[in-house]
Each structure stands twice: as structure tokens, then as C-alpha cells.
């Protein structure tokens, strides 16, 4: 799949933002000016991510229609979940910043909605049967784990941040390993795609140039590059920030750990798209052999 920068920015930033909001709702929030900066950062990431997602739309001016189909569409549900979360947490933030009081029930509801929003975002990808790498319960697990890890680091919850960072590495590796073979496991190949028997190769492409399908679904990452990026990703998303937090629980350590972790999530999310293969590639003679 084409790793569109707007979608990578959207999922990484809004994931971290909603993860942080969940922790703020569950007791990490201060009051007054410190709370202002906490919520400013959380809202900037969550809203910034959502705004960047609008840039990949062909006709963003009709965006409000996306709230109508929540009964069937995960993308529509995402609209509702994010708006509901942002509204509840806005009331919570105003209460904390201007009135110095933290309404606990509102915070718990906001936190639950924050996690639900990340879940709903992940389901946009996890529902795709056409992309076997994504079509697994591991996709929401991975999205929520990334969001909570970022939230734990930002809210300076030392022990939980460390546990989540250490758990995220193996989870990420497991997602890659189980995703690598899923395309072939599902039985998708050129024979099932065309219904023809025998050994098939594409003799002539339907078009001499490129097209929307190849631009959107034809992306292929070199395997040796992917292997290098996976190592870099694990170092940034888990190992280095965990070491940083082990050295000290100083605010600078949390800041550095967050920067490293977020960079790791960017690499991870780029791979999430770039390595995902859409079944339509089979019609263009690209077999399932590669991961």
C-alpha cells in the first residue's frame, strides 16, 4: 500500500494524542497552567492528526457527510468517536485549567472514549480483507499499545511507561512475523484471482503507463530495506526509550524517550503501509511469494 504521509501523520499523531488524553483523564492531569500545557499538547496532536487526514480526501468540503454512515462504516464511526472524545475531554480540560477541579467520572469516560477512538481508527485498516497483513486482531492491539505507550511516557508514569515500552518491542516483532505469511495463508494467488488453472504469468499489462490502482496498491518495499528499517524501528520504538527511562526519571529523560519513541512509531507506521500488500496486485502478476 502507498505510504501516504498524511495518513501516517494522522495515525501516529492522533494515536499519541488520544493515548495522552486517556492518561490525563485517569489522573495524570494537573490543574491551572501546567494543565493548560498538558492539554494543549494532547489536543494539538489529536486534532493535528485528524486535520492532516483531511488532506488526502478528494473533496474535503463534503466531509460532514462522513458522520452519516456509522451503522456500517468504521471511518464514519471514527468521526463520531473522535468528536465525542474531544468534546468530553474539552469540558474536562476547562474544568482542570480554569476551575482547578478534576471531575473523576468525566475523566474515566473521556479516557475510555480515547482508547475507543484509537480502536476505531485501527479497525479502518483491520477490517480490510483485501490486505491480509492488516486483517487481524493484532492491528487494533498494536495501535492501542502504541497509543498507551506514548500516553504513559508523556504523563511521566515511569513504571507503566517502562512496562509498556518493554512489551511493545516483542508485540511489534510478533505483528511483523505473523503478518509476513498471512497473504499466502489466506490462499490468495493468481489462480484464485483469475480462476484459471496452470502456471500463470502476466503476458501484457492492461495499460502501458501507471494508474490509480498501481499508485495506491502497487507499492513494494525492497525486502533488505524493510529488514533494516525493522531493526531501526525496534531500537527507536522500544529499546532506546526504555534505556533512557532506566537511566533516570527526570523530565528531560521523559522528553527524550518520547521523541525517540514517536520517531520509532513513524518508522513502524511507514512499514505498516509500505509492507502491506493488496490482493489486487495479483491481477498485475505480482505473486504472494514476497511478504
Amino acid at each position: 500500500m502507498h505510504p501516504a504521509p498524511s495518513v501516517i501523520l494522522f495515525t501516529v499523531l492522533s494515536g499519541a494524542g488520544f493515548g495522552y488524553l486517556a492518561f490525563l483523564g485517569l489522573g495524570a492531569a494537573s490543574t491551572g497552567w501546567p494543565a493548560f500545557w498538558q492539554f494543549a499538547l494532547a489536543f494539538a496532536m489529536a486534532v493535528g492528526g485528524l486535520v492532516s487526514s483531511v488532506f488526502h480526501l478528494g473533496n474535503p468540503q463534503r466531509g460532514l457527510l462522513a458522520f452519516t454512515q456509522w451503522r456500517t462504516s468504521w471511518l464514519s464511526r471514527e468521526g463520531w468517536a473522535s468528536v465525542a472524545t474531544l468534546l468530553i475531554m474539552a469540558v474536562f480540560a476547562i474544568s482542570a485549567i480554569f476551575f482547578g477541579s478534576i471531575p473523576p467520572i468525566l475523566g474515566v469516560i473521556g479516557a475510555a472514549l480515547s482508547v475507543a477512538t484509537v480502536f476505531v481508527t485501527s479497525m479502518i485498516y483491520a477490517q480490510m480483507k483485501t490486505v491480509p497483513r492488516w486483517n487481524s486482531p493484532l492491528t487494533p492491539t498494536y495501535f492501542i499499545a502504541c497509543a498507551l505507550t506514548a500516553g504513559a511516557i508523556l504523563s511521566a508514569t515511569w513504571s507503566l511507561a517502562l512496562i509498556l515500552l518493554i512489551a511493545l518491542g516483542p508485540l511489534q516483532v510478533f505483528c511483523w512475523m505473523s503478518g509476513d505469511g498471512r497473504f499466502a495463508q489466506r490462499g490468495h494467488d493468481m489462480n484464485s484471482a483469475t480462476g484459471l488453472h496452470g502456471q500463470i504469468r502476466m503476458f501484457e499489462s492492461p495499460h502501458s503507463g501507471t494508474n490509480y490502482l498501481l499508485q495506491e496498491f502497487g507499492f513494494q518495499v525492497a525486502r533488505r530495506h524493510a529488514a533494516k528499517l525493522r531493526v531501526i524501528c525496534i531500537c527507536l520504538i522500544s529499546v532506546l526509550p526504555a534505556i533512557t527511562l532506566l537511566i533516570g526519571a527526570h523530565p528531560i529523560a521523559f522528553g527524550l524517550a518520547f521523541a525517540l519513541h514517536l520517531l520509532g512509531v513513524f518508522v513502524s507506521r511507514w512499514l505498516f503501509f509500505a509492507e502491506a500488500r493488496h490482493v489486487v496486485q495479483l491481477y498485475y502478476g505480482r505473486e504472494a511469494a514476497a511478504a
Binding site: 478528494g58 463534503r62 462522513a66 462504516s73 483485501t130 490482493v279 489486487v280 491481477y283
Partner: peptide, 28 residues
């Protein structure tokens, strides 16, 4: 087409590559 926002998700969901986004109009 009057309601299409051009998000491209339907093209992702189609296994057959039957949908193409028009690059001039931004609709599927």
C-alpha cells in the same frame, strides 16, 4: 458522486481493482 469525499476506502476494500479515483474530480 455528489456525496463522495474521495477518501478512497472503497477502492481499498475492493479485491478486484474495480474502482479508480478520478484525479481531476477527486471522486470515485
Amino acid at each position: 458522486e455528489d456525496a463522495c469525499i474521495g477518501c478512497g476506502l472503497c477502492a481499498w476494500a475492493c479485491p478486484y481493482g474495480a474502482r479508480e479515483m478520478d484525479q481531476a474530480e477527486g471522486v470515485m
